[in-house]
Every structure is written in C-alpha cells, then in structure tokens.
Amino acid sequence: MQPLALFDLDNTLINLDEAFQVWAGEFADEHGLEREAVGWLIALDRAGYPHREVFFTKAREHFAFGRAGRRAVESLPPAHTAPRSLPA
C-alpha cells in the first residue's frame, strides 16, 4: 500500500474554524472559563494565523494561567486537526 498525505489548505476537507470552535469550547469548560472566553479565543486565533506559542502566551497572560498554560499547548490538536468529534 502506498502512503498518502492529504493537505487541507483551504478548509475544503475539514472545517478548521468549526474544529477550533469545538476545541475552544472544550478548553473553556476544562479550565472553568466563562463562555465569553470562547469568543476571545476565536478572535485571538484569527483562523490559525498566530504561531501556537504566541497564541498560548497571550492566552496565559489573559486568563492568568501561569505555567499551567503549557498543558494547553499540548491539548490543541496540531494545526487544527479534526477534533475527536464534530457536531452533526
């Protein structure tokens, strides 16, 4: 069997914005954040444009996570891959 790589550069295979929104909701729930935090995270994300380290540095500062924010970096699927499940 030949290996195959799929690259979704324009949201045609996976709705990356929706995947990030699902992750942001899960992240807010896991960290006991208000629902407004989801909108703040989505606005900060800008469709994945800031580097993840920049994104999470700003999130740590905004939510005063301190060093606990490192786990948040690890909880984000790489490059906005599909979350475990998407809403139907």
Results as ranks from 00 to 15, higher is better:
Asp10Ser: 12
Ala64Arg: 15
Arg60Glu: 12
His51Gln: 03
Ala72Ser: 14
Ala19Ile: 08
Phe56Asp: 01
Arg84Asn: 06
Asp29Phe: 05
Gly32Ser: 07
Arg60Thr: 12
Ala59Gly: 12
Gly48Thr: 08
Glu53Leu: 14
Arg46Gly: 02
Ala68Pro: 00
Trp23Thr: 01
Ala37Met: 08
His31Met: 04
Ala68Gly: 11
Phe27Val: 01
Leu6Cys: 12
Ala64Pro: 00
Ala79Leu: 11
Asp45Ser: 13
Gly66Val: 05
Asn11Ser: 13
Val22Asn: 06
Leu33Pro: 06
Ala37Pro: 06
Ala24Trp: 02
Asp17Trp: 00
Val73Glu: 10
Ala64Gly: 10
Asp8Glu: 08
Ala59Glu: 05
Asp17Val: 10
Asp8Asn: 11
Val22Gln: 06
Asp10Cys: 12
Ile14Tyr: 01
Tyr49Leu: 07
His80Trp: 07
Pro77Arg: 14
Gly66Asn: 04
Ile42Thr: 10
His51Ile: 00
Phe63Asp: 03
Leu13Pro: 08
Gly48Arg: 09
Glu34Met: 04
Val38Glu: 05
Val54Cys: 00
Asp29Glu: 13
Leu33Lys: 05
His80Val: 07
Ala43Thr: 05
Ala24Asp: 01
Val54Asp: 12
Arg70Gly: 01
Thr12Trp: 02
Val22Gly: 00
Trp40Met: 04
Arg52Val: 15
Pro77Gly: 10
Phe20Lys: 03
Glu30Ser: 09
Phe56Lys: 02
Leu16Gly: 14
Glu61Thr: 13
Arg35His: 07
Ala43Gly: 09
Gly48Ser: 07
Phe63Arg: 03
Asp10Lys: 02
Tyr49Ala: 04
Trp40Arg: 03
Gly66Glu: 12
Pro83Trp: 10
Arg52Asp: 11
Ser75Phe: 09
Pro78Cys: 02
Glu26Cys: 01
Asp29Leu: 07
Ala28Arg: 08
Gly39Lys: 03
Phe56Thr: 07
Ser75Leu: 10
Arg67Trp: 09
Arg67Lys: 11
Leu6Met: 15
Val22Cys: 02
Phe7Ser: 02
Thr81Ile: 01
Ala82Met: 09
Ile42Gln: 03
Leu76Arg: 15
Arg46Val: 13
Arg46Asp: 12
Val22Ala: 07
Val22Met: 05
Leu16Lys: 11
His80Tyr: 11
Ala47Asp: 13
Ala43His: 01
Phe56Arg: 02
Asp10Ile: 07
Arg60Gln: 13
Glu34Ala: 15
Trp40Asn: 00
Asp29Gly: 02
Ala79Asn: 13
Pro50Ala: 06
Asp8Ser: 11
Leu6Tyr: 13
Val22Ile: 12
Arg84Gln: 14
Gly32His: 08
Glu26Tyr: 03
Leu16Met: 07
Glu53Val: 11
Val73His: 08
Arg71Thr: 00
Leu33Cys: 04
Glu53Ile: 13
Phe55Glu: 06
Gly48Val: 07
Arg67Met: 04
Ser85Thr: 14
Asp29Val: 07
Arg84Gly: 06
Ala28Val: 05
Glu74Tyr: 15
His51Leu: 04
Leu33Arg: 10
Phe7Trp: 08
Trp23Lys: 05
Glu36Leu: 05
Leu41Ser: 03
Glu36Phe: 04
Ala5Leu: 15
Leu44Ile: 00
